[in-house]
Design a binder for these strands. Structure first.
Lengths: 121, 121
DNA sequence: CGGTATCCCCTACGATACTG
DNA sequence: CAGTATCGTAGGGGATACCG
């Protein structure tokens, strides 16, 4: 029973999760969060660079996603008091613990796309 | 570059994905799909049992999610022509390849919840 | 028992414009 | 350069009722 799915209730920010898997997906499951984590895997990145590195990531959704990751203590934000402003983001230790999972999921997606010949010419 | 994120375009069901990670999340990232995969990890299950095993899973969302998984060739559906009707679901080989990832993600969620003392008494 | 159909809501997400 | 504000949309998701 130890490593089985816990049925115990998880409470987080006034929300409830019946399963740790559902909870994990809440933290990183939406469209851009895991992409951000992926792109931060090799170290801190400047805000603009990070945003540009992710295709189709609008400024609005970037802010939205990175703020959520920050709140959840997966990403750390550092502001340098210079002009023009400079902001860097990097993974926290807890955020880094997600890297292997994200890498695996990415690889799985690659394999699936290759097997089914989904890559456009 | 081999195991890096491919920038190549993935086309799937009239949708486009710029990253294999985003694509993978499209396949299993929403609220219940990964939970279904998790609960099928030990073998085939009868429809009703499977549905009941997942807390808060409505009949409607169960059908919706399992149909999508079926279309994506991650789950196989077997109908037994008896009365009353009996239907079983099981992971395909491709679906099984997701088990380790889902297990890891589940464990990660457990660890996070434990560290932050999120488990309700 | 297993599944579909309808109605409706909420929110993740997009586009655009604007501030320090 | 970094971020916020506002408006608008699509679809994931809940509740309920109904078929073979």
């Amino acid at each position: 029973m130890e490593d089985d799915a816990k049925k115990e209730l998880i409470e987080y920010n006034d929300k409830e999760f019946n399963c740790s898997l559902a909870f994990a997906l809440h933290l990183i499951g939406d469209k851009y969060k895991s992409l951000i984590i992926y792109h931060l895997k090799d170290g801190a990145q400047r805000s603009g660079e990070l945003q540009k590195s992710i295709t189709d990531l609008s400024n609005r959704m970037f802010t939205y996603s990175i703020r959520a990751l920050e709140k959840d203590n997966l990403v750390k934000r550092t502001v340098y008091p210079v002009t023009p402003p400079k902001v860097e983001y990097e993974l926290t230790e807890e955020g880094k613990s997600l890297i292997p999972i994200v890498l695996e999921l990415n690889k799985w997606g690659q394999d699936f796309a290759s097997k089914h010949h989904l890559y456009a010419p």
